[in-house]
Design a protein around this nucleic acid. Structure first.
Length: 426
RNA sequence: GGAGAGAUGGCCGAGUUGGCUGAAGGCGCUCGCCUGCUAAGUGAGUGUAGGGUCAAAAGCUCUACCGAGGGUUCGAAUCCCUCUCUCUCCGCCA
């Protein structure tokens, strides 16, 4: 959510931003509501002021035994008017707020204006793309041959877009989770946290999933609870409605959670394999930063995510999302895309974003400067470090060998009993 | 699921025969004084948000906020209703 005053005084900039993002929203109602709000508020406050002063007078008169009945009857009409305005004001405020919640974040000046992913500039590329002396297999074929992925049984149990991993397929997933958390806690200074996997609608609103993206979420029937689509939601909401101290910033969390997404509107996309699932595992990095440091923290956070790929020796590139591809709440996003030889393409494996004060305003996460008066909004950031399922995909496809086996990356071996290879029949 | 207790400022904790209580007192914190250092002492200050005034900031001023929402009343932290959360005991359970 943007600041009301900012929107009021920067309508042109907002309109331009809509164009850059390819976003449609009619702001004509905004002005009307904004003015209405202030006029109602002013009237209301004047009436309340009158009520307060006269009520005090009544109290004094009664104490002195004087007759206050004329004042009291006079105040009855004032009270009635107050009540009227008190029902009107929230209606105006709610509508204004709902409008405000539909305005996306302002992209950072470094974000390239563009339409779609094709316009995303590549920032850097790392690692050697391996030459195969045979056509490399996609991970779903490797996984089924090795008996570690079973998509047909997953469909029986839950339906499409679910997976069943067994043996080393399950163990490697677990190894990756532990490996990632270990690297981020030991070498990058993050604190581990294990949050609820279901959250209420207030939390979903705080990070921006609601009200606009309800159809992407799984909701628990009969409860005000949603399955989290990312750890970003519960972890960012850890500090909802809190005032943090200047000294403790930045706060850095790493959190493993499963993620649940309805993938509405993605019918026919990535139907095979582990790429697009209703449920997947992710290790997430979340930061609460001082405003002046947040873009530096974004670079650091991206580097922290990249470090996992480097340690796993998986080739990847970093792209900066253009205005048209940028998420609703983000001011700037780097995507990490890992090379998948089985499909001959770079595939998103992490998305690292600076939300500036956009989420913090919604979620009411503030801090206090040392000598300063008043509070300021923190900046929030997050990024996958990494999507675990997709990392497994990348390992299977990049580490596959001519005989159908898959080598296990050096750094993961301690996590799987020092095994070096996944072979047929275990 | 049954029975009971509670929710006040950064924290603890008064205030419930409705009326200068935005809220006593204590702790903490900030600035100053004092003190070889520390501790102690001492003076002042210390919530958030939204209006108005102002070019803006400061300042001044108004309004709201004592878990949330509603009601009674000229007037509610105080009375009534609903909800949420926390705690204790019993039951159940990984």
């Amino acid at each position: 959510m943007l600041d009301l005053k900012f929107v009021r005084t920067n309508m042109d900039r907002i309109e331009q931003m809509f164009k850059d993002r390819g976003y449609e929203l009619d702001l004509s109602r905004f002005r009307t509501l904004d003015e209405k709000r202030r006029s109602v508020l002013t009237d209301l406050e004047e009436l309340r002021h009158e009520r307060n002063t006269v009520s005090d007078k009544i109290a004094v008169m009664k104490k002195q035994g004087e007759d206050a009945s004329s004042l009291i009857s006079q105040m009855k009409t004032v009270s009635a008017s107050i009540k009227e305005l008190e029902t009107e004001l929230p209606e105006v405020v709610d509508e204004l707020n709902n409008l405000l919640l539909l305005i996306p974040n302002i992209p950072h000046e470094s974000v390239v204006v563009g339409r779609d992913p094709d316009d995303n500039p590549v920032i850097r590329t790392w690692g050697e793309i391996r030459d195969f002396e045979y056509p490399p297999l996609p991970h779903w074929e490797l996984g089924e041959k090795l008996n570690i992925l079973d998509f047909s049984r997953a469909a029986k149990i839950a339906g499409s877009r679910f997976s069943l991993q067994s043996g080393l397929g399950a163990a490697l997933e677990r190894a990756l989770i532990n490996f990632m958390i270990d690297v981020h806690t030991r070498y990058h200074g993050y604190s581990e946290t294990l949050p609820p996997f279901l959250v209420n609608s207030e939390s979903m609103t705080g990070t921006g999933q609601l009200p606009k993206f309800r159809e992407d979420l799984f909701k628990v029937e009969g409860w005000d609870l949603f399955l989290i689509p990312t750890a970003e939601v519960p972890v960012t909401n850890i500090h909802r409605d809190e005032i943090l101290s200047f000294d403790e910033l930045p706060i850095k969390y790493v959190s493993y959670t499963p993620c649940f997404r309805s993938e509405a509107g993605s019918y026919g996309k990535d139907t095979r394999g582990l790429i697009r699932q209703h449920q997947f595992n992710k290790v997430e990095l979340v930061k609460f930063s001082r405003p002046e440091d947040s873009y530096g923290e974004l670079e650091a956070l991206t580097a922290d995510a990249e470090d996992i790929l480097r340690r796993l020796e998986l080739p990847y590139r970093v792209v900066s999302l253009c205005s048209g591809d940028l998420g609703f709440s983000a001011a700037k996003t780097y995507d990490l895309e890992v090379w998948l030889p089985g499909q001959q393409l770079f595939r998103e494996i992490s998305s690292c974003s600076n939300f500036t004060d956009f989420q913090a305003r919604r979620a009411n996460i503030r801090f206090k400067r040392k000598g300063g008066s008043g509070t300021e909004l923190v900046h929030t950031l997050n990024g996958s470090g990494l999507a675990v399922g997709r990392t497994l995909v990348a390992i299977l496809e990049n580490y596959q060998q001519a005989d159908g086996s898959v080598a296990i990356p050096e750094v993961l071996r301690p996590y799987v009993g020092d095994l070096s290879t996944i072979r047929m029949g275990g």
